[in-house]
Design a protein around this nucleic acid. Structure first.
Lengths: 222, 222
DNA sequence: CCATGTGAACCGGTTCACAGCG
DNA sequence: CGCTGTGAACCGGTTCACATGG
C-alpha cells in the first residue's frame, strides 16, 4: 500500500523466492514457527548467505540471533510474488504434457487458475481434465477476453506453437510459457519463457560424460 | 578420436548447443546446406555474436564470408554433446508428467532411450506407455544394473522423490533429472538437475506484474 | 566485401567475510 | 553469543567492436 516496495528484484532471486515459499508452506504445515537461514537454505538447496541476500530484497524480515518467523516470511514472499490474488491462465495443447500441467496441483495452490483448456483435435475436445472440460481452439479468443487471462501456456507440437502464440497475443495475453521446442517471436511488451525438457536431459548427459574425460586426461596430461 | 577436444565448455553454452542442434536438424530436413550466424541465431532465439562465441568452443567450423555448413556443424555439435551413442535412462513415476516424458519423441531422436518405466502403484504397473510396459518399483535395481543406465528421471510426488533418488544412486545411476518439487540430496559425483514447472509460471507472473508497477510509478515519482 | 572468430569491456549474480543487533 | 543483513571481492557469462581471412 505505502512505498516500502524494493525498487527491483533480480530474476534469479524471484525464481528462488518461489522455492522458499514452497518450503515455508511445508514448514508451516508441519507446525514450525521459526527457521534459520541455514536450515531454510539447505531445504531449498542453496547457499545460506545467498538466501539471506535474496531475502534482503524484501527489506529486513528476520530476527538477528534467532532466525525468521515462518508465517510472517511466508506471507511477505507471497505478497511480493503477487501470489495473494489469483491469476487466470489458458492452456493450449492438451496432450500428455498439457494434461499433466492441467492436473498439477502445484499451480492451483499458488494462485494460478486454468480458466480454459484448448485443443484443436476434435477427439480431445470435451474431455474432462483436472476438473475442466477441453474446449475447441476456436473458443480461445472469447475465453481470453471474457476472463481477462493474461498468461498463456503452450504445450502443443512445435509446428503450431507460433500461430497459437500469435492468437493468444492478439487476444490479449501478455505472458507466455512455452513448452514447445521452438523459439517463439512475440511483440515487445509480451514476455515469453521457454522450457525445454530435452535440453535439460542433454545438459545432464554432457555433464555426466565430462565427469569421465578429465579423469582420463589426468593420466595422459601430467 | 585425437585430442582436438576443447578443454572445457561453459554449461550455458552446452544448453544452447542442444538448441542449435535441433534447429540444424530442421534446416537439414528442409534441404538447406548452409546458414549464417545471424539466421541460426534468430531461429534459436539468441544473439548472433553469442552464437559465434558458443561455436568457437568447438574450434573454427564456419567459412568466413559465407557461413556454416549445416551438415558439418550438425555432426560436430552432436559429437561434442556425445549424442552419437545412445544413452540408457530409467524413468520413475508414471503419472501424467511421467507419461508425457515417456512419450516425448524428442528424447529418442537425441539418443536417449528409456530402458525402464517404473511406478509403485499396482494400477499403473503393466500399462503400455510409449511402447514400453510400466514395471513395479521393485525391479528398478535389477534393470539399472542390467542396462547400465546412468541417467534417472524422477517424476514422482515430492514425498517419495528422495527415497527414489537414493535407490537410483545406490543402483548405479550417476545423473538425475528431478521434476518433483523438492531439493534432492545426493552424494558427490552424482549430478542432480532440478526442473520446477510451477516456479517458471511464478517467475512469469512476477515479470508480468512488474511491467505494470514501473509504469504507474513514473507518474508519481517525477 | 562479407561473415566468422575473438580479445576486451561490461554486467549480473554469487561468495565471502564481517559488521550490526537482538 | 548467534544469526541476520550487507558491502566488497570474485566469477561466469554476455555484449561489443574489430581484426581475420575466404
Amino acid at each position: 500500500m505505502s512505498q516500502p516496495r524494493p525498487r527491483t528484484i533480480p530474476e534469479a532471486t524471484v525464481a528462488r523466492l518461489a522455492v522458499y515459499l514452497r518450503v515455508l508452506s511445508g514448514l508451516a504445515d508441519g507446525g514450525r514457527s521459526t527457521v534459520s537461514s541455514g536450515e531454510l537454505a539447505s531445504a531449498a538447496g542453496v547457499n545460506p548467505a545467498g538466501l539471506r541476500k535474496d531475502l534482503s530484497h524484501l527489506g529486513p524480515c528476520g530476527v538477528r540471533g534467532v532466525g525468521y518467523e515462518v508465517a510472517t516470511l511466508r506471507r511477505r514472499i507471497a505478497a511480493v510474488l503477487g501470489g495473494e490474488q489469483s491469476r487466470a491462465c489458458v492452456l493450449v495443447g492438451i496432450g500428455n504434457l498439457g494434461s499433466a500441467l492441467a492436473d498439477y496441483a502445484g499451480f492451483g495452490t499458488r494462485g494460478f487458475e486454468f480458466v480454459g483448456l484448448f485443443d484443436s483435435a476434435p477427439g480431445r475436445v470435451g474431455q474432462l481434465i483436472g476438473g475442466r472440460t477441453v474446449r475447441p481452439m476456436d473458443d480461445v479468443e472469447e475465453v481470453v477476453t471474457a476472463t481477462r487471462a493474461s498468461i498463456g501456456v503452450i504445450a502443443t507440437p512445435a509446428e503450431v506453437a507460433q500461430p497459437v502464440c500469435d492468437r493468444l497475443v492478439a487476444a490479449g495475453v501478455r505472458s507466455i510459457l512455452n513448452f514447445a521446442p521452438v523459439a517463439l517471436a512475440a511483440p515487445a511488451g509480451v514476455d515469453v519463457r521457454q522450457v525445454d525438457l530435452s535440453v535439460e536431459l542433454q545438459v545432464l548427459a554432457f555433464l555426466g560424460q565430462q565427469r569421465q574425460v578429465p579423469a582420463a586426461l589426468a593420466g595422459g596430461m601430467a
